[in-house]
């Protein structure tokens, strides 16, 4: 951490635990899947709303300077972007990065695209919702289960740190999830790297009446950067009926990163305590 970061109110707020340390970046909004609970209504036909690699690198660099401690990359499906691995590798020279993916684009030789992220500062977070292929695939699309089960060990074999994220409409500690936990462990993923989180009722999930209702204070206030502006939390820039939700918009300005970061900090000053810990939204 530089002297600038130590003096920054943002670094102080992160150190005090009032501001989360991670900055999320939405690389794009289009996806090869169209999951039923997708927050961003992503599908192959979605508007791309794509961040430029240069913007992502500037965000990473400035996040580090401001005192943020980690980066997250999500979409849409980030691996639809051919330049994604090289950009993430460069971002990881500034801060640790977690990249979210559906892992369905790693078949055959394409696994080497993901394997480029074998780096001590990078982890790849893959969605898997059930140990039952048909249950998983009902929400996430045909053959999703099989593709994930194939990709995870191959990535781990190539030195990639893999995390699994399970999104559930049920209780987060339901015994029905135990077989899934066993399956994930059997794939070589450490128990701490298996996240279970609720469906958040925003985006397509809202249209389908799925998941938990959440207000701003329920959603982790991680600064989130998109092509449409900066938002409160990675659950902020959702899309409903084709229109971007603006309720959690902070600023349209994303760079310099201090502009949205300070807007977020200003809001946190007047925000009552939230219960994201109770809802488990992460």
């Amino acid at each position: 951490m530089t002297d600038v970061a130590i003096e920054s109110p943002i670094a102080q707020a992160i150190a005090e635990g009032t501001l989360p340390g991670r900055v999320w970046l939405y690389t794009n909004y289009h996806c090869n899947l169209a999951c039923s609970y997708c927050l961003t209504e992503s599908s192959p036909r979605s508007e791309r709303r794509q961040l430029e690699p240069s913007t992502m690198l500037a965000v990473a660099e400035q996040a580090k300077e401001l005192g943020f401690t980690a980066l997250g990359v999500t979409g849409g499906e980030p691996f639809l972007l051919p330049w994604l691995p090289e950009t993430v590798l460069e971002m990881a020279s500034h801060l640790p990065v977690v990249v979210l993916t559906n892992a369905t684009l790693f078949g055959g030789n394409r696994i080497e695209h993901g394997a480029l992220l074998a780096h001590p500062n990078i982890s790849v977070q893959i969605s898997l919702d059930s140990d039952q292929p048909d249950v998983n695939d009902m929400a996430r699309g045909p053959d999703n289960f099989a593709k994930v089960i194939e990709a995870v060990p191959r990535l781990i074999d190539r030195g990639v740190r893999v995390r699994i994220a399970t999104t559930t409409g049920g209780s987060l500690d339901a015994p029905e999830l135990d077989p899934l936990r066993d399956l994930v462990a059997g794939l070589g993923v450490a128990p701490d790297d298996h996240l279970v989180r609720p469906i958040v009722r925003r985006g397509r999930a809202d249209e389908m009446a799925l998941g938990v209702r959440a207000q701003a204070r329920d959603i982790p206030s991680e600064l989130t950067i998109t092509a449409d502006g900066a938002f409160w939390g990675s659950f902020g820039p959702t899309v409903r009926a084709g229109r971007l939700d603006l309720d959690l918009l902070l600023t349209r300005t994303v760079l310099p990163l201090s502009v949205p970061a300070n807007a977020l900090l200003g809001l946190l000053g007047g925000m009552p305590e939230g219960n994201d810990a109770n809802l488990g939204i992460r």
């Binding site: 701003a216 939700d245 603006l246 309720d247 959690l248 918009l249 902070l250 600023t251």
Partner: peptide, 13 residues
Amino acid sequence: IQLLDASTAPMTA
């Protein structure tokens, strides 16, 4: 353009 109201306006507004 979209004219925002209390239910659609950004939290910063």
